[in-house]
Structure formats: structure tokens, C-alpha cells
């Protein structure tokens, strides 16, 4: 354990540099650069709002903010875990040639996605202002669901990147899983329309309790339910520990498969 901490401290600059590199490369060679991280959610919000409020006539109050919050958590999760899954393979050149702590690759990818995702808080706040949502002290509590989501994404990223090294099929399978996850997350429909008998199924989705907490504190300006937090925290601990365990057990064999 002590050697791991020492090792991390020795390479911590590298970890930060990997994150910076990801972010730099993301906006390199595009004219609008970071602006895309603001525009993208807004454009998506406009499309979804037109479709769901006008065409399908749903009854969700303040639909634009509802969609933006749901989209933010989901797209962070899907983007970061997808990148993390590919990270070991993408850096195979490096892993074969020099010693670098291998968990840096999935974790730095998750962290860089996290930072760019935080940018989409700006359009959310903007739209909240425009639609006259009352701001409150509870808003600051968004740190809690965001942090838990980061931990879950790290755990999932480590698990996925490990599996992907041994079975490239995981890439195809995961895109299906992500789609299922999207429909299991109340991004553009109200959670109340889910029939009670399927509720246990929805609770399997780690994004579900997190999104509920996130909307409670940000959109509705109220305290979250402690039971939801407990479930979300349990997910975070489980995903993270399983991720570390799987990755640690298998990492020495990566080099034979990349």
C-alpha cells in the first residue's frame, strides 16, 4: 500500500498532464473549441424540448432544465466509460515500452471527461435563470451526486478497460448496454411513468438515484432523500472496489493481449 502511494506521488504530474492532454486534444483543430461543450447540450435541449413538449405533449414542469440535467449525467457517464474502456488499448504502444502505472489511463480519461462535462453546468444555470428557477443553498449540494458519479464511472471504467483488453467484443456489447441504460434513465420522461413492478429494475441503474438527487438539489432546490443517497453511495463503493480488484488482478497480463 505504501509503495502504491509513493508510486502515485512520483507520477502524479503525469496523471495531471494526461488529463490536460485529453482536454487539449478534444478542442484542438475546432474553431469553436470549448464553446462546443456549451452549444452541444443547448442544441440537444432544443431538439428534445420540441419533440417531447410539442409533439408528445408531456407534463413535465420546466422540461428544458429537466432534459439538460438528465443529459449531463448520462452523457458524462457514457462518454467517460467509453473512453476509459478503450484507454488501455489506445495506449498499448506506451504500455509495451515503458513502465507507467496502468490505472492512470482509464482514470485520467474519466477525470478529463468529468472536467469537460462540468462545463455543461453553465448552460444549465443559464437556462435556469431564463426559466425563472429559484436558486437556493441546496444547489451547492450537487457536489455530492457529481462526486459519487465520478467514483462510479472510475470503477466502471476500470472494469470495462480490463474486460476490453481480453475481449474486444465488449466494445459492441457496451454500446448496447449504454443504450439500455439511456432508456432506463429518466432523461426525457418522468420517473413516475415507470410501473411499480419494474421499479426494482430501474433501481439497478446507478444513474437513477444520482439523477434524482441531482435534480432535487439543483432544479427543485430541495433536500434529497437520504435513502437515495444511501443507494447511490453503495453503488459508488461497490463499483470502485470491484474495479480496483479486477484491474489489479489482471493488469500484469495486459501486456500479452495488447
Amino acid at each position: 500500500m505504501k509503495t502504491h502511494v509513493y508510486n502515485f506521488l512520483k507520477y502524479k504530474d503525469l496523471f495531471l498532464e494526461l488529463i490536460r492532454k485529453d482536454i487539449n486534444l478534444k478542442y484542438k483543430n475546432s474553431y469553436l473549441g470549448v464553446l462546443w461543450s456549451l452549444l452541444n447540450p443547448l442544441l440537444m435541449m432544443i431538439v428534445l424540448t420540441i419533440i417531447f413538449s410539442e409533439v408528445f405533449q408531456n407534463k413535465i414542469e420546466n422540461f428544458p432544465v429537466y432534459v439538460l440535467t438528465g443529459r449531463m449525467l448520462y452523457s458524462f457517464f457514457s462518454e467517460s466509460t467509453n473512453f476509459a474502456m478503450n484507454s488501455i488499448i489506445n495506449n498499448s504502444q506506451l504500455i509495451r515500452k515503458v513502465y507507467v502505472p496502468k490505472y492512470f489511463f482509464p482514470l485520467s480519461r474519466v477525470c478529463s471527461s468529468f472536467i469537460t462535462s462540468l462545463i455543461s453546468l453553465i448552460p444549465i444555470i443559464l437556462v435556469m435563470l431564463l426559466t425563472g428557477v429559484h436558486f437556493s443553498f441546496y444547489n451547492f449540494l450537487i457536489i455530492i451526486p457529481l462526486f459519487l458519479l465520478l467514483i462510479i464511472a472510475m470503477g466502471a471504467g476500470m472494469i470495462l478497460s480490463t474486460i476490453f483488453v481480453f475481449f474486444r467484443d465488449m466494445g459492441h456489447l457496451y454500446s448496447v448496454i449504454l443504450m439500455i441504460l439511456m432508456y432506463m434513465t429518466p432523461i426525457f420522461y418522468p420517473a413516475s411513468i415507470i410501473p411499480d413492478r419494474y421499479h426494482w429494475l430501474i433501481e439497478l441503474n446507478p444513474l437513477y438515484p444520482l439523477l434524482k438527487i441531482f435534480r432535487d438539489v439543483l432544479m427543485y432546490g430541495q433536500m434529497f432523500e437520504w435513502s437515495e443517497l444511501l443507494i447511490a453511495a453503495a453503488y459508488a463503493v461497490i463499483y470502485f472496489l470491484v474495479g480496483i480488484y479486477v484491474f489489479y488482478k489482471k493488469q500484469d497480463r495486459f501486456i500479452f493481449h495488447i
Binding site: K10, Y11, D13, L14, E17, L18, K21, N24, L25, K28, N91, Q93, L94, K97, V98, V100
Partner: peptide
């Protein structure tokens, strides 16, 4: 090892140096 084609020489010096375990 670990040179990134899209980054400039200077940026790669940092990246590669850190990979070799130097401090920033």
C-alpha cells in the same frame, strides 16, 4: 515512447518526461 503526433515538440517533452518519471 508515448509521443503524441498531435502535440507539439514542447508539449511532448513534458508528456514524455513525465512518463519517464521526472517531475514537472
Amino acid at each position: 515512447a508515448g509521443f503524441n503526433g498531435d502535440l507539439s515538440g514542447i508539449e511532448n517533452i513534458y508528456l514524455n518526461g513525465l512518463i519517464l518519471g521526472y517531475s514537472k
